[in-house]
Amino acid sequence: MSSGREDGGRPGADPVITADEVRHIAHLARLELTDREIEWFRVRLGAILEYVAKLNEIDIENVEPTSHVILMENVLRDDVVRPSLSRDEAIGSAPSSRNGFVAAPRIIETDDSGVV
């Protein structure tokens, strides 16, 4: 299996991942990318996606996935209240805060009905 090629796909063949897909993923991940960056990532993501396709060689039928390597279960804590941070500690390092709240650019234009 080839690996490490920089074009991310055989000439003339469908690219492993398209620029539009990269754009969509960048949006999902909230990353603003220029067209040049889109292309840069497309090539690199294409290369790694092509490489990981080697996993398709393996028969995984009847194999359970591993999401945790430890076999512990029922790790629970008692319902006991512990001291919280002071407000200063909690929001003191926010880039913007006012009157005890963290301030963020507003997302939703409601009619004016307040909390959504």
Binding site: S84, L85, R87
Partner: peptide
């Protein structure tokens, strides 16, 4: 009495941002 993943209180009506910790923040 406490939150689902940390020990902060769930009491209603506290001043804003006074019932938080590294976990729930």
């Amino acid at each position: 009495a406490s939150k689902i993943y940390c020990g902060c209180s769930t009491a209603f009506g506290a001043e804003p941002n006074t019932q938080t910790c590294p976990v729930c923040l």
